[in-house]
Write a protein that binds this DNA or RNA. Structure first.
Lengths: 337, 337
DNA sequence: ATGAAAGCGCTAACAG
DNA sequence: CTGTTAGCGCTTTCAT
């Protein structure tokens, strides 16, 4: 093992003091240009790389951001991570990623761990369990330790911290409005997001669109899980004659279309389908799926930007909520106008 | 801000010395049971959490693993990360994740950054650019600094470090053999992995299966990218009469099936299709796609296990290559036997 | 059984 | 302009 060069190493090599070397590398005005040059060349030769831990110990800054997400297999979250990673790297930060796997317990552990390794800020999307139970002590602890916290997508309004969310209400509203415009009148709403902030907002948007259009229309809601979707939707279809369906995520849209096919319904001729999350599945299914596109990468970048801002300016401020608008991507699972 | 409690805080609180507190918390036999109890209760009361940086500075261990992957949007890599995260957490380690985005330059930066933050080991899957150019100096640097390195999936055999890979040869061989068994005789191989170790091994497996079966069969290979797949495969089909197709990833399989449909070919009646990577797309497309399943989560776990083993036992050893077998998941994009 | 002190690598106040 | 020194929070050797 060739031991790593430290400031001391360079200092000895050049017969200078450690602090001179430190200042030279930091481009301090106290140091003459000639020795700066000397030091910098030596540093390069000796492949000097500052020890982030030592520096962090001194400055209590680590240039790392903690991220905790419920599920990385979900296209939306993966995309958010891409956006975060890009923005973080651009600003000299790196990401410590934790996957809470929709478990409150794991979320708590992750937060502990992140605070242990002294990340400069934490960015989190809450687990469904956290949102259902509304248990937020562990999040308050983070704020209490003065670690900047920003929530994204699945936020909690009882918490005094910044957040960045999709305009879920309007996304669902637009989807329903579009279906109405194309002639659908019996539009159902299939949700795998029971008890989450996101799910509730989408439901409201859907309901509002129906009643704004014609207040005799009755909303029909199917709560389900991916694992039981085929059964739940199947029996629902047998008892309800629908011509439109909005689902709260990408996989649900696909599963629903498969179920519809099995039940002898054509998409979009018999029933139009709109999903959320614009991923590979929606784009490449047959027929391709009309989708409410959440600007995942933008969301990730914004979250990092807010975190960095908070971290550089630690005075109190009213929590701000950044709202990102969705976009309805029209494809072939819906009738044309 | 309520300032974090440190050993000093506890020590003052109890009128003990810092070192006594430190030892008590570490369960040192030097300390009496009574004071141990005292210290531990105080620690809990004051919500003491050790500072990982300070500890790391002393022990030059950070309990973090660096991971660099080419693309997190790819189902396979996302799954690998899930496996890694699980195994790492189980062992008290956390993951610093970098996305190289298939760029050699970004890969180098990531490695630098990871070495800067003193991760205890690095786990990497190489970018296609790295594999094409065979530039591995940056990887050698890591080994040179004695940071345990383990490569997964896309490995480089010129590098003296452990790796864990899929049995790509056999995966492709089995896929081709299955198509042959179901009666296909004009099987093409469509690759988006030109110049990668993985792509080459799959190609060999495919070729071997053909010649083992009947050495008059001629392999037909289409190199393409996702962005131009439709064109490339389209013209290929016009000039070649195929009844079977093996693609090197999940999206390619889907795109290919769309292309085949456009060209008036039925799947699987006219041509059978087999893809790699068993994700949502393959499972839920219509028809569902017969797939070579790579055990992604297992791979992630194995990689972490190897990294941890190396890190706890730093003597030299011959590089070991762990090979994970694939599994052919038979669905509806292939004819039955 | 407990404490004092050195030192991990770095920064920054202070002295020269 | 350069060097000395103290200290970030912790572990660990060496007294007591």
């Amino acid at each position: 093992m060739s031991t790593k060069t430290t400031l001391k190493g360079i200092a000895e090599h050049l017969n200078l003091s450690i602090s001179t070397v430190s200042k030279a590398l930091a481009d301090s005005p106290e140091i003459s240009d000639s020795t700066k040059l000397l030091v910098k060349t030596a540093a390069r030769q000796l492949k000097y790389r500052p020890n982030a831990m030592a520096r962090g110990l001194k400055s209590s800054r680590t240039n790392t951001l903690g991220v905790v997400i419920p599920n990385i297999m979900h296209n939306f979250f993966a995309k958010v991570i891409v956006g975060m990673e890009e923005e973080a790297t651009k600003n000299g930060y790196s990401l410590v990623t934790c996957i809470s796997n929709e478990s409150l317990e794991k979320e708590k552990q992750s937060l502990h761990m992140l605070s242990d390794v002294s990340v400069d800020a934490i960015i989190i999307s809450l687990t469904s369990e956290t949102q259902e139970t509304n248990e937020i002590e562990h999040l308050k602890d983070i704020l209490h330790y003065d670690i900047p916290l920003v929530m994204f997508d699945r936020a909690n309004s009882d918490l005094a911290c910044d957040s960045v969310v999709i305009n879920d209400y309007k996304g669902a509203y637009d989807a329903a409005a579009y279906l109405l415009k194309t002639g659908c009148r019996n539009i159902a709403f299939l949700s795998t997001l029971n008890n989450t902030s996101v799910g509730n907002k989408r439901l409201s948007g859907y309901q509002a669109a129906l009643s704004d259009y014609d207040n005799t229309l009755v909303p029909k809601v199917v709560y389900t899980k991916l694992t039981s979707l085929e059964n739940d939707l199947g029996t629902f279809i047998e008892n309800n004659d629908i011509d439109g369906l909005i689902t709260t995520d990408e996989s649900s849209a696909i599963y629903s279309m498969n179920t519809l096919r099995i039940k002898g319904k054509q998409v979009p001729e018999d029933v139009s389908v709109i999903g959320f999350t614009d991923g590979n599945l929606a784009r490449n299914y047959f027929p391709s799926v009309t989708t409410v596109k959440q600007q995942a990468e933008i969301m990730g970048k914004k979250a990092v930007q807010i975190a960095l801002k908070n971290l550089n300016n630690k005075d109190q401020h009213e929590p701000v909520q950044e709202i990102i608008e969705t976009e309805l991507v029209i494809r072939n699972s819906t009738k044309t106008i």
